[in-house]
Design a protein around this nucleic acid. Sequence first.
RNA 1: GCCUGGGUGGCGGAAUAGGCAGACGCAAGGGACUUAAAAUCCCUCGGGGCGCAAGCUCUGUACGAGUUCGAUUCUCGUCCCAGGCACCA
Length: 776
Amino acid sequence: MGHVRNYSIGDVIARYKRMRGFNVLHPMGWDAFGMPAENAAIEHGVQPAKWTYDNIAYMKKQLKRMGFSYDWRREIATCDVKYYKWEQWMFLKMYERGLVYRKNAPVNYCVKCQTVLANEQVEKGMCWRCGEEVIQKDLTQWFFAITKYADELYDFCDRLPGWPENVLAMQKNWIGKSYGVEVDFTTENGAPLTIFTTRPDTLYGVTFMVLAPEHPLSSTLSKGTSYERDVLSFVEKAKRQDRSFRGESSTRKEGVFTGRYAINPVNGMKIPIFVGNFVLMEYGTGAIMSVPAHDQRDFEFAKEYDLPIIVTISPHDRVLNPQNMEEAYEGDGVIVNSGQFNGMNNREAIPLIINYLEEKKYGKGTVNYRLKDWGISRQRYWGAPIPIIYCDECGVVPVPYEDLPVVLPLDLEVTVVGKSHLPECKEFVNVSCPKCKRPAKRETDTMDTFVESSWYFLKYTCADYDEGPLDKEKVDYWMPVDQYIGGIEHAVLHLLYARFFNRVLNDLGFVGVREPFKNLLTQGMVIKDGAKMSKSKGNVVDPDYLIERYGADTVRLFCLFASPPEKDLDWSDRGVEGSYRFLQRVWRLVIEQSASLKDLKGIVELQEMDDDAGLLVHLIHKTIKKVTEDIERFHLNTAIARIMELVNGIYRYIERERTQQKEKDLLRGSIEVVLHLLFPFVPHITTELWERLGKDIREIGSTWPGYNEKYVQEEKVTIAVQINGKLRDTCEVVRDIDEGLLKEIVFSRDKVKHYIPDRQIKKTIIIPNRLINIVC
RNA sequence: GCCUGGGUGGCGGAAUAGGCAGACGCAAGGGACUUAAAAUCCCUCGGGGCGCAAGCUCUGUACGAGUUCGAUUCUCGUCCCAGGCACCA
């Protein structure tokens, strides 16, 4: 149902824009590779390719039944070799540019899915797909160097006004940019020990240092001291500890003294070096300076191991005494105990201290990111092969461009869930080395499916192009995507990857723009009984059943009417009935009137008619205006509400039989407007009714009604009458009434007189055509 | 802890720029039509009080202050909910 909603929103916009004369690219395609398809296929004893294409056929049928106006000539399936061939080509280009590399590293591994996951694909220590706990494994894997773009991806978040705040906040959080400084401490034997800190203003308060267990010095520093044994066993233990456990802030801070000391460059102080379980090798330099007075973690550690505390920042409202501090003071204040920087405000001092460090060559200002490179190797069959060959002689050899594509064998029998069958396929694995022609082996990991979805939107612009990866002319004609619609679940997955990939392709000269998506709309989930629809919860609503029972238009209408696009939608069977009722009401209106309206021209102008007609003319024009504005700003639910009001108004108009020619012209005109406004939401019923009115069906989807501002304004307006800010009365006057006249009318009213018996009127505020407020 | 959103009837939700709170729909209650039902149509519908009555009146947009002639809307503080990040130095 979530898809139906998403696509219904997109279809309204596409149809509306077409009606307004735009050339609209509204495509559909299939993100077809991936584990769910692979596993489902195996469970059903079918080859994944067949399974996938059968599913595509089924889905396509459903989408067509829903009446979504896709340009099927641009259809893409990412498992089609014509598509992933160019992805492999891009991989090679990125390899040449050093944007793809291979390294052995601890990676996230899902035991259930039996494959590696990128950092973005781990949610709270669990696999984003299956919810299984993710473990760490040392593996040699391929990585995309997304961190090379970290800075830009972060900064451009402030240049995406068309994106929702929360998505930008999530991306910024994920990239995690922090300004600081790398400072070189030295060990006793003169070896450098570099740390990263965001608080150089506390440098004089360092009383010890802590290394991550994985830090190279952790295992070597204590050599020859009596602490060596303890340190090594601590390191071993920490490395075995569960990472998600080690990452908990509630985990007790443990450490061990290395027997060695370091020198603080700014004050020459000799400070002990520890190895600690709470320091992360992946962040900064894997080593920290510890300032227990001003960092809570360091404070806890210092208390645990009885280490000294030196205050270097004094708060404005009290004096800190290291002896009786109960927690670290992390706030701002005046610098103390810090040589030449004493007396300064700590915030203002930070840049000066960094300057000082740089001048003295003690360190340099740095920016650190939380973002890690994107691991794209997947130990799975159903994906795009990574175009790499391993040769005993030549090492890692990229597949030559002219040998592309590396085709995923489809005749392979795939029988065991969770295991990649590619390594067993001798015809695939065994090749001759492109360099030395000796026997070599292909890479058998496939690419993360997020790679496919990182550039599909570009391929839509030139789906049939095969001379190269992309037809730049077409890409530049269409890009960027004016309106992207998707779920919030992709806030840091797909949307970050796609922004990265688009930049790479921009650098490679295939795309003219830097950012792919100008405007983003994140639609809410479809909820039933208070939970997201899922098979396991048994609260799914079957679109096929609904289409069968109510028709596609009702399903579309309800999805759009029940809540604004960006909010979650509470599924309600009763609500669906309501939408169905409304469409039947429209149907009845047209069918009942169509006989008497034959051969009339629809007119929506006022021509010497009664008040009812005047009201209807006004309502028609106001509705056109409001619906137009509402669609423009994606308030599709209120747009529908407006049209409902117009339909109600037309019914009111025909309570009295309308026999005059001009009355019937107006009635017909109003009905035509309803059908036009309703068309982007419910194309089937409106097209049918349009035809029954004897009109050309090509017309309904290609024009959008205009309104006349003259009729939008009503002749008479109701003014709210307030006395001291409280509503006491309303009165009807002609539009744009003279203020003096208005006062005269208002002051002569009994109610007003009643509320201002004999008091003096201090002032009167008039908001034209809306309100008058008498202050007394 | 930090960063985003958000809190309005029984429910989903309205209220472009500070100006009649509750549009539109759902549910509920009452009525009309019908032999009956369905369908359809009409009326009522935030809460309290007064009135036989048309009506009158107080109160109300999480809570408390503030700005303003006037606040659902702006400012400050508090509480709660959802999402993201979090031993990130």
